[in-house]
């Protein structure tokens, strides 16, 4: 315990069964949902920890993080255990488990392999399952614009990058821990580039459409022809950044300076009943130097005006 951890894993536990604020704030956007879910889960974990050590939490006092977090092999896990976590309650076949992995900007592509495996591992262990039904990969800086009739030309540098990352997903599919693969925010030109290289065809392309009736016809036709389901999502382009993560951590007495590298969102829906039983997030961050702190983390599709209350 002498070396301070250099990596951080935060988790929300099951958002649907945590407190009211999470769903309510999540209505605004998924960044807010993530942030408020983390906050609720931290509070609940502290509550549990203080109870078990028979100590009272007083307003304004910060509880020693060591009582409710875990630090192993340089990874700080917050909280160590979540009171809202939950294994799937019924037989596995009854669920559709979807996992969406957000690779955040500023991380070398070479580390995606490790990150993808790590993220999936967390979800499988959280839900107590061997596989997920759908893994959607969200690449950094790839955004689909439904209003833009002329899709941007795919640059020659980006194709090998996303294909490289996709290879890892294919490997997971082939080893059985993922049934179906998907990508996020791909227009028809990116999809077509990916298809040229893919060994396992993506079954899903997830696009953010506020007004879902304006999806470009070429994309609809292309997806239909290739048998790719076009699904909708409402996630922010920037689901987490250093400033926002730092804001939450600071409220609970942690140092700032953690640079988030990936976020994974998972949902378990009871297939025959359409009921969401479990939904949550993990985020992973690297201890970064002061230099890495960017001042303005907002913009990029998510309105973050003042919702992170520092102090």
């Amino acid at each position: 315990m002498t070396t301070p951890p250099s990596q951080l894993l935060v988790r929300t536990g099951n958002v649907t069964s945590s407190a009211a604020g999470v769903v309510r704030k999540g209505l605004a956007n998924s960044q807010r949902e993530l942030v408020s879910a983390l906050r609720e889960n931290f509070k609940a974990a502290i509550g549990e920890a203080t109870l078990s050590t028979k100590r009272e939490v007083e307003d304004g006092n910060i509880v020693d993080p060591q009582t409710w977090t875990e630090s192993v092999d340089g990874v700080l896990t917050v909280p160590a255990k979540s009171p809202y976590s939950g294994q799937l309650k019924e037989v596995r076949e009854g669920y559709e488990v979807t996992v969406k992995l957000f690779f955040l900007p500023g991380v070398e592509q070479s580390r995606h392999e490790q990150h993808m495996k790590q993220a999936l591992e967390q979800v499988l262990s959280e839900l107590g399952t061997e596989y997920v039904d759908l893994l959607i990969v969200s690449f950094p800086d790839i955004h689909f614009d439904a209003d833009d009739e002329d899709e941007p030309v795919v640059t020659s540098e980006e194709v090998p990058a996303f294909v490289g990352t996709y290879r890892v997903a294919e490997e997971l599919q082939q080893n059985g821990s993922v049934r179906r693969l998907g990508v996020s925010e791909f227009g028809s030109s990116r999809l077509s580039s990916l298809l040229k290289h893919a060994k396992v065809k993506p079954g899903v392309d997830q696009i953010n459409v506020r007004d879902c009736c304006v999806v470009p016809k070429p994309l609809i036709l292309f997806a239909k022809e290739k048998g790719i389901d076009l699904l909708t999502h409402d996630d922010c382009a920037e689901i987490l950044n250093e400033e926002i993560l730092g804001g939450v951590l600071k409220e609970f007495g942690f140092e700032a300076g953690w640079r988030p590298e990936w976020v994974v969102k998972y949902t378990a829906v009871v297939r025959d009943r359409g009921v969401v039983e479990n939904k949550g997030y993990f985020a992973f961050a690297q201890k970064g130097g002061e230099a890495a702190v960017e001042k303005n983390g907002n913009g990029n599709g998510c309105d973050g005006n003042g919702f992170v209350k520092l102090n």
């Binding site: 769903v23 209505l27 559709e96 759908l134 696009i207 879902c212 909708t232 939904k279």
Partner: peptide
């Protein structure tokens, strides 16, 4: 008050819905 349609939208954003259905 949160509103029932915003809640339904939140649900639809959580489950996998295709573009045509959503529309």
């Amino acid at each position: 008050f949160i509103g029932l349609i915003p809640l339904i939208e939140s649900y639809l954003n959580t489950v996998n819905v295709d573009v045509q259905t959503r529309c």
